[in-house]
Structures are given as C-alpha cells and as structure tokens.
Design a binder for these strands. Structure first.
Lengths: 236, 236
DNA sequence: CGGACTTTTGAAGTAATTCAAGGGGAGTGG
DNA sequence: CCACTCCCCTTGAATTACTTCAAAAGTCCG
C-alpha cells in the first residue's frame, strides 16, 4: 500500500503543492526520473516543449539568448521548482535554455499528459498561475531595476535576491550555495564581468563580501542592503 | 431568455475565452461595469488586490515605481486584456499601478468571487496560466533587450511591439492608436526622453517615422525593423 | 607542472545622461 | 478671436558611468 516516493516530493513542489492525492497519482504514473551532471543542458531554447521538469535536488540556470548571441540569465532554479514551464502556459517552444550548474535530479513528465491532467484538476492550474505570476512579478522588479538603477545597486540587489533564494548561513556570512562566476553575475545584472569584478573588489575591501573563484559570500548583508537602497553611500 | 450582453464580451477576453457558459454566467453574476476617463487611476501599486478588471474598450498603462520614485512602464493594456492580474496568481497586493490613457470601459469583479469560481472551473485557471505565461515570456525578451542592446535598437523594438499590439494601418504608415509621449517611450525602454527625442528626430529625417505631440506613426516598418535587428545600419 | 578557465586591474574610448535653454501646439479663458 | 499658459518636444554642450581593449596574475584539475 505504500505510495511511490516521488508522490511525496511532488506534493512539496511549487506546482503540485496542495493538490489532491488522486491527481498526484496520475502525475506520478506518467512521470520519470532523470539525472543531469553539472554543465548538462536540460532543455534548449526554441525546441518543442515536450517535457516539464520538477527539480528534486541540484541547481539549474535558465538563460535566454538573442539573435546575435548575447545572453542573459533569467533565473536560477532549485529544489521544488519547475524547469520548462512552457506547457503550463500553452506555449509550444521553450523561450530559453536550461542548464544544470550542479549535479541534479529531476522528475520529468510529458507536456501533453500534464496538460490533460491539469484540465481535470483545477488546483494544478491554479498553482501554475500562481507560480507564473510570481515569476512575472519578479521580472517586473528586475526590469525596473535594470532600467532605472546604476550597476552597483543592481549587483547588490541581485546578490541579496540570490542570498534569499539560495543562501546558506555560515560563520563568514551568507554563502551562495552554487557556483557563480563574475560572468554569471554580469549576465544577471546587464553589465560586464569587468564591472562586476571591480565592484566586488570594492566591496571586498570594505568587508561587505568575501568572494573567490565562482564563490560569493555576503559577509555584511546589512551593508549590502544599504548599497542596494542608497547607492554606494553609508560606508559607516 | 437572452443572455446578458457582457457574457459575450467576457467570452472573447483572454481570461474567459473557451470557458463553458455556466462558468461565464457565474462570473457575470458577480461582475459590474465601470468607466474611467483618460488620466484616471484604475488601481494603485501596493493596494490590496480586491478587484480584477477586463478591458472592454479603451487603453490602460501599467507602471511600476521604485522607492526613489523612478518609474517604468510594464505594458499597455487594450480590449480583452486583464488589468490587475494579481488575484489570478494568488498575490494580495498590486505590484504596479494602472492608469487609463484613453477613456475606457472595464468589467470588474471581486477577487474572492473570481478565485472561488476559478477553483471549480479549471479552464479559467488554465487561461490565467496562459496569459501570465505570455506576459512572462514578453518580459524575458524585454529584459534581454534592455540588458544587451543599445538604446536605438531598444526603441525600435519597442515601437514595433506597440505597432503589433496597438497599430492601425493608415495612408502614412502604422499609427500607434493611443497617446504616447517621448517620456512614455523612455519609460518603456529604460532611457531618457532626451535620448528618445534625438533618436526619433534622426529617424524622422530618414523618413522612417512621423511623430508629433504624443503621436507616433511608423512610416517605414521595414526600415525600423532593420534598425531593430542590425543597429542603425542599412540606411538604403 | 602544464593548460584551461577565472579574475583582476589599468588605460582609453564612448554611448548616453545630465544640465541648460528655447521653441512649438493645444487648450483655456478673457 | 487672440493671448496666455501649460505641456511637450528639441537641440547643444558638458559630464560621466560604464564598456572595451589589453595584459597579467591567480586557481583549479588532471
């Protein structure tokens, strides 16, 4: 009589939280596990969105690339989150690419089957709307920041968001738990790795952050918050 | 036996398209009409999201303002679109402000009632996910443009999008059907009204656009497209 | 210990902002 | 109908934040 262990995991994910058990069983019946190593591509921009994934463990990066090859990072995805949301919103091709930045375990399911189940279980569709709304709101804020703030504030905001989303308290401060290069940060803030490097160097000197090769620790979150809200003022 | 006329309008809106008639009747039963004059505020950032609106006629502008008063335009809304999507995604306060830019008729409905109906009719929730997904994809593209492209290309892309969304074919070219100032365009592109003015002046000289006080006509969409895709090259 | 990748820092260049002033249109009120 | 006023738009000049170009140093992995 024991349920499939994935049922439990799905029940805690953003897409299936609060969804009735019978619906979860239907989902589980069409779902499968898949592993990706750090660096593997999970899904590719402009490909048909045939599969939707739920992250079990690991960390993924969602990017979008323009015609001339310029890239930005849309967001990072962690456990419980959806990778490849397209089928939830009736789209047919992926608007971006998703790559694993750490070894990851995902639960996959065919788009068509999911949509069919969703049509019979409003709670899944409501969760989908909820998750997409949250991402939309998030991008609204980032768009405003990008349009109106100077780089150092944008970098500060970005780090604070990452800390909230994927930060681990340590003796040295809040550590971003996945590898994050200067280039990555630049692609999240709409700047260059050079500017990010210079900015972090400045904060390093003031003891606000403590960063190394693809690692960032926020030593003084409050000071970083000051930068985010008032520009580089308030050195103290 | 004749249905309420709003049923028909709702049935053609992005949120209620394809929704069964009994669900539409439930929606109509809690809905009401409301008019706004150009300049009126429909809903305010940080207010509780008590009402969701569907646009019947007119045009609205959705903006977001930061702590230091800096503002960007998230999007314009026209007939059939949702204003105040927050209740669809389980949020409680509006992430932005919506203002009428032309005299507008809206259909309003209480958030709580809508959510209750949505929980029983998956097709509404699916439409909600679909609409939010579309907006999210749109912002992803704009974020990338803002992060990676120079101003003239961004302005070109913005005008082309507006033309597609709210353009009317005329003898002089494609006219944006609602009042749109240099400042508005600047707030959509992440630049200043000065830069927009200079850029439009340049295009005016090349016969690409024909603009005046809060009016823009795209005389040569193909030429504008060239600017959007290749920078200011390809004068011809 | 070689080699690839990441980071740092300096110097030059520039796109776009900011500062500043003036001009034009539309609507209003006398 | 004309003049006044309020917006909105334009354009020049100065400034600057950031990029681009360039080179070197550090760090991890096999």
């Amino acid at each position: 009589m024991a349920e499939h262990p994935d049922i439990d995991i799905l029940a805690r994910s953003e897409l299936f939280r609060g969804v009735p058990l019978d619906a979860l069983r239907e989902v589980q019946a069409v779902a499968f596990r898949k592993r990706f190593a750090a660096g593997d591509t999970v899904l590719r921009q402009d490909d048909t969105a045939a599969i939707l994934y739920v992250v079990v463990v690991g960390r993924l990066r969602a990017t979008q690339t323009g015609l001339d090859g310029q890239q930005i990072i849309i967001r990072y995805l962690g456990p419980g989150e959806v990778a490849g949301y397209t089928p939830l919103s009736g789209g047919d091709v992926h608007p971006g690419t998703v790559v694993a930045v750490d070894d990851s375990h995902l639960i996959g399911m065919p788009s068509a089957a999911l949509r069919e189940i969703m049509a019979r279980h409003a709670s899944i569709a409501i969760n989908a709307a909820s998750l997409l709304g949250a991402r939309y709101r998030d991008l609204q804020v980032r768009l405003r920041e990008l349009a109106t703030e100077k780089v150092d504030r944008r970098i500060a905001h970005t780090l604070l968001r990452l800390a909230q989303q994927a930060g681990r308290r340590t003796a040295r401060g809040i550590e971003i738990v996945f590898p994050l290069s200067r280039q990555d940060l630049a692609e999240m803030c709409g700047t260059t790795l050079h500017t990010v490097s210079r900015t972090l160097s400045g904060w390093e000197a003031r003891g606000i952050v403590d960063s190394g090769r693809r690692r960032v620790v926020i030593a003084k979150p409050d000071a970083l918050n000051d930068v985010a809200e008032e520009g580089q003022g308030g050195t103290g």
